[in-house]
Design a binder for these strands. Structure first.
Lengths: 222, 222
DNA sequence: GTTTTATTATACGGAACCGTTCAATAATGT
DNA sequence: ACATTATTGAACGGTTCCGTATAATAAAAC
């Protein structure tokens, strides 16, 4: 009937914590090291030993925290997705004309997606999705669907404010983000190293602006 | 001064072909088997032995034709790109209204990209691009850039015929193809198995049609 | 001090696989 | 027949690496 935790130690409800306490910082350090290895050289090319070395930790400790290599990978993906979630939650675009807001959103989106780490993360995640579909959905929920939802909401508010005239804002959001990425999305994934490309990319600015132009030509009120 | 090949065999310009002749069909068989393995389970997970077994060939024969595993991979990519090239060269969309032509192009593009093999090919290619940028460009030239060029040309002709009014057809083509892919492109890469999705996808048809609608609302003349 | 638990360093078994070697065989010419 | 080249099957050295085990050490409570 009583709580199992309190039942373990008879008198108090505070666990004694006998022996050397677990270093709570290590798990996060391991996850960061794992992310670095996994999303730079790939799952198969990453060794637990190198991850442990990077984390400044013994290999056994890695296995103590994470049962297997695949579990560690899944945890690393989860960690990365959590970071992404937080980064995208500060995405409150308000103020300025609707054109300014849309361009701002588009440029932020491009800047976010075109980062080296994001490109590599996407690449190495996509292959592993093939025999672990869950991590794909994890990413979709943390990133793309979240972005799409944010843009849809932005459009909804603009419609409510009478700045836009859209019947299907979800469809409109999909179109806009699609245009913002454009053909450059493929160059990003298959082209020369991203790190060699200029940030910010002048071509990106042009693409985003003309996308918003096209978008507003149909949905804008003025 | 003389041709090096004729200089090798003194009298004739026809090589004798001594000994057992090379089975010219084997290289193609090996490449197909390699493609199957590489783009289904990945480069690192593929073994030369299993590729040879699938091709019904000895491992030594594989090494006789292709110097190393990476060379075999590059050759497999090249082969796949050649196939893609040929598939895309039959892309002569003509006849019907401009709307019909654009919708047709969009649907063909979706059907092409959403195939299982294409999805897996893209996934496994993207990771290998990281330490072999050449194969990425190979793919870009055989696929995406080719498609983009075809669409741009289609738009150019429509402009010449007075059906459309566009100042930058390349930019317009990028926007249109971007909209056609939309958010679904991410679901395609990171979502559940494609083979479970219906072909043709009713959502895709809706997306393509509304994309063309938006496109024509700005660039159309009527 | 002792006890208990976390962590490390090291080593190990076992598996997978790349690329090579070698002897044997097959398929063509002369 | 013979010579020559392609191909095969099998085995091998070497490497990498997962996951586990073991003995020693570190950090806490008592």
């Amino acid at each position: 009937m009583s709580d199992s935790k309190t039942a373990k130690t008879k008198p108090a409800n505070v666990i004694k914590a006998l022996g050397r306490p677990v270093d709570t910082t290590k798990s996060a350090t391991i996850l960061n090291a794992a992310s670095h290895e996994f999303f730079n050289v790939g799952f198969a090319q990453s060794s637990i030993e190198s991850i442990a070395a990077r984390a400044g930790v013994s290999k056994v400790t890695v296995y103590n925290r994470f049962k297997t290599k695949e579990a560690l990978f899944a945890a690393a993906v989860g960690n990365e997705c959590a970071v992404m979630r937080q980064a995208l939650s500060v995405e409150a675009t308000s103020g300025g004309t609707i054109r300014e807001r849309l361009v701002h959103f588009g440029m932020e989106m491009v800047a976010f997606l075109w980062r080296d780490e994001m490109v590599r993360f996407e690449r190495h995640l996509a292959v592993e999705v093939e025999h672990n579909p869950e991590i794909g959905l994890l990413f979709l929920d943390a990133g793309p669907r979240r972005l799409h939802q944010a843009l849809s909401q932005l459009l909804d508010e603009a419609v409510a404010d009478g700045e836009l005239e859209i019947d299907d804002t979800e469809q409109a959001a999909e179109h806009l983000s699609g245009m913002v990425k454009g053909m450059a999305d493929l160059e990003r994934r298959f082209g020369a190293n991203i790190s060699m490309a200029k940030i910010p990319d002048p071509k990106a600015a042009k693409r985003v602006n003309s996308a918003v132009d096209l978008f507003l030509k149909s949905y804008g009120k003025c």
